[in-house]
Design a protein around this nucleic acid. Sequence first.
DNA 1: TTTATATGGAAAGTTAACTTGACATTCTTA
DNA 2: TAAGAATGTCAAGTTAACTTTCCATATAAA
Lengths: 70, 70
Amino acid sequence: MKNRVEEIRKRHGIKQEELAAALEVTRQTIGSLENGRYKPSITLAFKLARYFHMSIEDIFIYEEEKENEK
Amino acid sequence: MKNRVEEIRKRHGIKQEELAAALEVTRQTIGSLENGRYKPSITLAFKLARYFHMSIEDIFIYEEEKENEK
DNA sequence: TTTATATGGAAAGTTAACTTGACATTCTTA
DNA sequence: TAAGAATGTCAAGTTAACTTTCCATATAAA
C-alpha cells in the first residue's frame, strides 16, 4: 500500500500539523503515513479523500501485498 | 460507515463463505461487516472493491461519525 | 552562530479489526 | 418434519493503527 499524501499535501501548501488538525489525528499519524510506517484506517482514508477532494483510489495505491496484510 | 456488501454479494449470487475465501478472510469477517459490527480495514475495502469491480466509495458510505471513530 | 519551525522517528499504551472455535437460528429441500 | 446449508453471533486471543510523550535532525531566518 503506497500513498501520495506527502506529495498532495505539499501541493496544497500545508504542514503535517495543519493537515493533522483538519483531520483530527496527530501529526505523528500523518508523518507515519507519509513515511509508510503503517496503512491508514478506512476512516482516515475517507477523511483524506474528502479533504483533498480526491478518491481514496487516487491517494492510495493498493498493490497485491505479501504475507503481512490484513 | 455503512456499506452495501450484502446487497452486492447477493447480486453476484455468492455465499458469505465464497466471498470470504476469495478475499482470504473468514466468513465471520464478512458477516460482521455486512451486519455493521465493525468497519473494514483499508486492505479489505480494496479487496472488496477489486473483487466487485467497483470503487471503495461505491461500496462504503462514509458519514460524519460520532465520538467513536478513528 | 543562535533560535524557531518543520519533520523523523522511537517507546509504551489503548483499541478495534480480524482469527479461531463453537453453538444457535433461519431457510431450503428432500 | 427432519436434515443440511447458509447465516448470526459470541468469547477469547492476536495484531496493527493510533495516541501521547519525548528527543533528534534539518532548514531557514534573525
